[in-house]
Amino acid sequence: MTEDDALERVVKILTPHVRNEEALANVSAETNILDDLKVNSARLVDVVLAFEDEFDIEIPDEDVDSVNTVGDCVKLIVGKAN
């Protein structure tokens, strides 16, 4: 799986939970999931569970804590899935 492929699928999963449409329209690897996209912490749990389902991986809370941006997210997923 390439990072571009993962990015597309990550953004698709994030989209229903985003509260800042403008940030979503300009999403990039540098976009912060909490501060820019305004995904709240309860929704972040749903997002992580959806990532686990989509990519058939396990993401422990310790890994979630190290993820700030969409790019962090993509790297974590690609690293676990490949």
Binding site: A42, V45, D46, V48, L49, A50
Partner: peptide, 10 residues
């Protein structure tokens, strides 16, 4: 509104 595994995770 939440993922079916939300409770088990949290």
């Amino acid at each position: 509104a939440h993922h079916p595994r939300f409770d088990g995770r949290v």
